[in-house]
Lab assay of single mutants.
Amino acid sequence: KKVTINGVEIKFNNPEEAVKFALELAKRLNLRIEFHGDQIKIE
């Protein structure tokens, strides 16, 4: 399963991993996060 985070394609074994990764990243950098299907936007 491929997920695009800020235009960067990252391959994950499952979608939950991708979501956890994105949330952790957003929390660490104190950023806002948006989900659009397989696209995750962090700003």
Rank of each mutant, 00 (worst) to 15 (best):
K1D: 06
K1S: 13
K1R: 13
K1I: 15
K2T: 15
K2I: 15
K2A: 09
V3W: 07
V3M: 05
V3L: 08
V3P: 05
T4R: 05
T4D: 02
T4C: 15
T4W: 14
T4Q: 05
T4V: 14
I5L: 08
I5K: 02
N6T: 04
N6F: 15
N6W: 15
N6C: 15
N6A: 08
N6D: 06
G7I: 13
G7E: 03
G7L: 08
G7M: 06
G7D: 04
G7R: 03
G7F: 07
G7Q: 04
V8S: 04
V8P: 02
V8I: 12
V8W: 12
V8E: 04
V8Q: 06
V8H: 10
V8F: 12
V8Y: 13
E9K: 05
E9L: 12
E9I: 13
E9C: 15
E9M: 11
I10F: 13
I10S: 02
I10R: 03
K11A: 11
K11M: 14
K11H: 14
F12Y: 04
F12M: 04
F12I: 04
F12R: 01
N13E: 11
N13Q: 10
N14F: 11
N14T: 14
P15M: 14
P15G: 10
P15A: 12
P15S: 12
E16P: 05
E16V: 10
E16L: 12
E16R: 11
E17W: 13
E17V: 06
E17N: 06
E17K: 07
A18K: 01
A18Q: 02
A18S: 04
A18Y: 07
V19N: 03
V19H: 06
V19Y: 13
V19P: 00
V19Q: 05
K20W: 15
K20V: 06
K20R: 13
K20A: 11
F21I: 05
F21D: 00
F21G: 00
F21P: 00
F21M: 04
A22K: 00
A22V: 12
A22I: 14
A22S: 02
A22Y: 08
A22G: 02
A22M: 11
A22C: 13
L23P: 00
L23T: 07
L23S: 04
L23W: 07
L23E: 05
L23V: 07
E24T: 08
E24I: 09
L25G: 00
L25F: 08
L25W: 10
L25D: 00
L25M: 09
L25K: 00
L25Q: 02
L25Y: 12
A26F: 10
A26R: 03
A26S: 06
K27Y: 09
K27E: 08
K27I: 08
K27S: 10
K27G: 08
K27T: 10
K27C: 15
R28H: 06
R28L: 10
R28P: 00
R28A: 08
R28E: 05
R28K: 07
L29E: 02
L29K: 02
L29I: 04
L29Y: 11
L29T: 02
L29D: 00
L29P: 01
N30R: 11
N30K: 10
N30Y: 08
N30D: 04
N30L: 09
L31T: 03
L31S: 02
L31Q: 00
L31H: 01
R32L: 05
R32A: 04
R32T: 07
R32Y: 05
R32F: 05
R32D: 02
R32C: 13
I33W: 05
I33N: 00
E34H: 08
E34D: 05
E34G: 04
E34L: 09
F35G: 01
F35L: 05
F35H: 04
F35P: 01
F35K: 03
F35A: 03
F35N: 01
F35T: 03
H36I: 14
H36T: 12
H36V: 13
H36G: 07
G37L: 09
G37M: 10
G37T: 06
D38H: 06
D38C: 15
D38L: 07
D38P: 05
Q39H: 13
Q39W: 14
Q39E: 14
Q39A: 11
Q39S: 12
I40W: 04
I40M: 04
I40Y: 02
I40N: 01
I40P: 00
K41I: 15
K41V: 14
K41H: 09
K41G: 03
I42F: 06
I42M: 06
I42G: 00
I42E: 01
E43C: 15
E43D: 09
E43W: 15
E43K: 11
E43I: 15
E43L: 15
